[in-house]
Amino acid sequence: MRPLPTLRQLRYLVALAEHKHFGRAAESCFATQSTLSAGLQELENLLDVKLVERSKRKVMLTPLGEAIVARARTVLREAEDIADLAHASKDPLTGALRLGVIPTIGPYLLPRVLPPLRQTYPNLRLYLREDLTARLLEALGDGDIDVALIALPFQTDELEVRSLGHDPFLLAVRADDALAKAAVLDLDAIPEERLLLLDEGHCLREHALAACRLEPSRHRDDFRATSLPTLVQMVANRLGVTLLPKMAVDAGLLGGTGLVAKPLSASAPAREIALVWRPTTPRTVEFNLLADMLASFAVMPGN
């Protein structure tokens, strides 16, 4: 049988590909630079190929080195899954778990769910990563995070999806706005020219456009925000109106602003809160336990 690369050697190669610097790569692997360099030299000797181009100014991988890095990432992820499977069989939701969450959910759901989660699973070490949906799903596919808390609809490809409930939209307006007089607003009553939305890349922007049945080009494009608190302040300053998820309003987003949140007609679509993970993960049982806890605090159907 031919000698095979070790996981340590592959980890060194992947680290060098990510950092393009021997010192930083070694630090990320908790190794000395000489140890990492020797490990890579051993890998090249083992495979009898050149993987790294070394010079005083820069570090580059050869084309073959780049191809092997892509395979190495898969091998390392599978090895981690083996360790996770063994660990999960002993005590679920213990140890490290890397949770990605989008910014229109994290600040409004997690403060309510984290205290009981820590109490129920005291040995869980939860690492949070807040980012836009597309980047979270990319990180999930690359194995950089274990599970992601997102809003649908969004293209999830082959990922496992566990729905946690539906989060309807509310229209945020000033209390002295004519729209504030209606008990329930029809979608047609929302003036397109006054509607403020999050910037491109936020899935809530697309959900809001879908809720109002608008094309991206049919609403005002002169003001955009990168967060819900910024949108709220823009509305408070008489720049327009905006759609907010009920989850955020219930969490007190409008507190002290003088704004009111008006419900939309029953025909208005809502976003769906979901937990997603790789279908190959050995931690499905754990992620369903996490989903059970999240669902008990998320906005549920009919709310």
Rank of each mutant, 00 (worst) to 15 (best):
R2G: 00
L4H: 07
L4A: 12
Q9K: 03
R11H: 07
Y12V: 00
Y12Q: 14
A15L: 10
L16Q: 09
A17W: 01
A17G: 04
A26K: 03
C29A: 15
Q33E: 14
L36A: 08
L40N: 13
L40K: 09
Q41A: 14
E42R: 15
L43Q: 03
L47V: 07
L51S: 03
L51H: 05
R57L: 11
R57Y: 11
L61R: 08
T62G: 11
G65V: 05
A67W: 08
A70I: 04
A72M: 06
R73W: 03
T74L: 15
T74F: 10
V75W: 09
V75Q: 06
A79M: 01
I82T: 07
A83E: 15
L85T: 04
L85F: 03
A86R: 13
L99D: 04
G100I: 03
I102P: 01
P103R: 08
I105N: 02
G106I: 00
Y108I: 01
L109F: 12
L109R: 10
L109V: 11
L110K: 07
P111F: 05
P116E: 13
L117A: 13
R118I: 01
Q119K: 13
T120H: 09
Y121S: 03
Y121F: 15
L124C: 07
R125F: 04
R125D: 07
L126K: 06
L132Q: 13
L132H: 12
T133A: 15
A134H: 09
A134E: 14
L136K: 02
L136M: 04
L149N: 10
A151Q: 15
L152E: 12
P153W: 11
P153F: 09
Q155Y: 14
D157R: 12
P168L: 11
F169C: 05
L170W: 09
A172F: 09
R174N: 05
A175L: 04
A175C: 06
A183Y: 00
L185N: 06
E192W: 00
E192K: 10
L196Q: 02
D199M: 01
C203M: 02
R205M: 06
R205A: 08
A208E: 07
L209Q: 04
L209H: 03
A210D: 14
A211C: 15
C212R: 06
S217C: 06
R218P: 00
D221N: 11
D222C: 04
A225C: 15
A225I: 01
S227G: 08
P229T: 05
L231M: 04
Q233K: 09
M234Q: 08
L239P: 00
T242K: 02
T242V: 07
P245D: 12
P245W: 12
K246E: 15
M247Q: 12
A248G: 09
V249S: 04
V249N: 00
L254T: 04
L259Y: 09
L264K: 01
S267I: 04
P269V: 07
A270G: 14
E272F: 07
E272C: 14
I273H: 13
I273V: 15
A274E: 15
V276R: 03
W277V: 02
T280Q: 14
R283V: 02
R283Y: 05
F287C: 05
L290R: 10
A291K: 10
A291E: 08
P301C: 13
